[in-house]
Design a binder for these strands. Structure first.
Lengths: 338, 338
DNA sequence: CTGAAAGCGCTTACAG
DNA sequence: CTGAAAGCGCTTACAG
């Protein structure tokens, strides 16, 4: 009368007339079990709908199949768009994904206790969540490898996967120059963000090679409305500007809307480019020329690093950069065909 | 030499010189523990960074604090945008969220085994994942209450939370009529979708009250590109149409882009409205008049239903409808001020 | 107010 | 090829 709820290995073993050790082995595909018994056990398990309790397994094996994915309340749709992708990739790699959300003003530290309670195999943290050294150190103490997306840590044990933001910005800057643009303004993101920093560095390096500097820095803070407003204010005075290099697609879209509302044609009067590869950037309203982050590869690598088998000896942190890809659409004047 | 890894209750008990029962009680806030011992235990626990193993707890308490969130690879950004919201709401309700992703051509059935292995407390399934009767029945057998978002099941145990799509469509239709629109085309979604069905029903009911029917049905299948193309083809012939009622914001944005590319001004020449409340709909490129789904309330209710305490006796399925809200922006001609 | 014991559902040496 | 036993880290009656 005990087993009224979910079937357990014990139930199957009774039904099959074997020990629960055998049931466990049969379901795990242990080759030491005879074909006949395995078949019988599998059949019975299927009939009663038995699935081994993952919590119990992980308790005894001392390893978890659960990866944490830490997100922040974010304005940038880039990560939102890839949530399915990371869920799919984790599943393919044999892991489950558990979501942790930290508020815009919070810190990774807020969710470390929960992460620890679930004894995560590893965790992936997106750039927009504040990750204090203390939080990172606690993760390490809890034995949870963490990998940061588009962000760097300087402790010895936190890995990072980044789009090669500087290189991508260089490619874009060169494209702009080849297109004949000389007076380039930059629409920048939040200070202190490594994404913002590296993309600016890339742009400025190329400008410098050509004896140029940006004609203006508009501070969009990675926020759509802010980007719209600051761009609109800037354009109102009809400045002598060729192109706006936005540090993110979201801001580029805001800038394009500002131009439209000012009656400025893109790209005839002004080129606008972005970085990221968000969906709306491809819509006819924008047709944004941009550098696409290699999301699939980045996430795949992040999962590998987060789930890296625990080889006793300290696996030193890895930092991997993956190149983005220039996506030419219609928001920037193109180089003359050669 | 055993406890080298993550601290356990046993470690704390040794450090504090008490039994692990006491440790467990102290951390659970059991009032039978004296202030002094509790303080001491809490202090030690904090020092070594002890967090009780959630897997072990759920094993003995036989209850899980984990909710499943089942998503599909989807074109519609509506749910993507609310992933943070549901993560936050779950956390506030004391649950963790585990993500399950089923492919566009797959079925909920694909992830039921995984859901079962983790002995989920409950699961929330968004409209775009195919949920066969068989999948739903298996969830029931596994004791996992499932709640469907914007979709209905006809078995007796699956709950649903829906935006009141029909009522919302009625409100919008009336608004259009009051604005003087008489020749209204509809840009519809996928057949068989209850969202599509109910929104069409609402629209048509109001049209009928005014002796009208739609002047055309454009099939957008809930896909941006499709909506753009079908609308553009339709508008090319300069049909005599007042307004396009799009069954989703995403399609409305596609339709607006089509109008723009055809040189048709919105709303001067043509009104276009949507339904959902996605972010880009609020951007200056669109300024879309729409009906916003009450996502916060819907998700909150869904979480409550999915986490409903298991009261032995079968909790019959609940179906809750929540009204959307008309959001007036600039994509539709407004009724004359009265 | 606290502890010893049993048990949740598994896996894995250790025997045979 | 299979089983009995121990144990993963907890919680919870049951005693005291």
């Amino acid at each position: 009368m005990k087993r009224q709820g979910t079937p357990s290995a014990t139930l199957i073993s009774e039904l099959a007339g074997v020990s629960k050790s055998t049931v466990s082995r049969a379901l795990a595909g242990n080759p030491s079990i005879s074909e006949a018994t395995r078949k019988r056990i599998l059949k019975i398990a299927a009939e009663v709908g038995y699935e081994p309790n993952a919590m119990a397994s992980s308790l005894v094996t001392m390893k978890s199949g659960v990866l944490g994915f830490v997100i922040a309340s974010m304005e940038n749709p880039f990560y939102q768009e890839h949530i399915e992708r990371i869920a799919r990739l984790s599943a393919e790699a044999g892991h489950q994904l558990m979501l942790f959300q930290v508020s815009a003003t919070g810190d990774l530290l807020d969710v470390v206790p929960a992460m620890a309670r679930y004894r995560l195999r590893g965790a992936i943290v997106i750039a927009s969540v504040n990750s204090s050294d203390k939080a990172l150190e606690q993760c390490h103490r809890h034995g949870i490898p963490v990998v940061l997306i588009n962000r760097l840590a300087n402790d010895g044990h936190t890995s990072s996967v980044l789009c090669n933001n500087e290189a991508g910005a260089r490619v874009m800057a060169r494209y702009l120059i080849e297109g004949g643009h000389r007076r380039i303004a930059v629409l920048s993101g939040r200070e202190g963000s490594i994404v913002n920093r590296d993309r600016l560095i890339g742009l400025r390096a190329v400008l410098a090679e050509h004896g140029l500097t940006e004609v203006a820095e508009l501070k969009g803070e990675f926020i759509f409305d802010k980007a719209y407003q600051v761009t609109r204010d800037y354009l109102k005075a009809r400045p002598d500007v060729d192109a706006i290099f936005a540090v993110s697609d979201l801001m580029a879209c805001g800038a394009m809307d500002a131009a439209r509302d000012e009656g400025i044609r893109v790209p005839q009067d002004l080129s606008i480019v972005g970085f990221d590869g968000i969906r709306p950037a491809s819509w006819p309203a924008y047709r944004l020329t941009t550098v696409e982050q290699p999301a699939e590869e980045m996430l795949k690598r992040a999962i590998e690093l987060a789930a890296r088998p625990d080889t006793g000896d300290v696996p030193s942190a890895e930092v991997v950069y993956i190149n983005g890809r220039l996506k030419i659409r219609a928001s920037a004047r193109k180089p003359a065909a050669s």
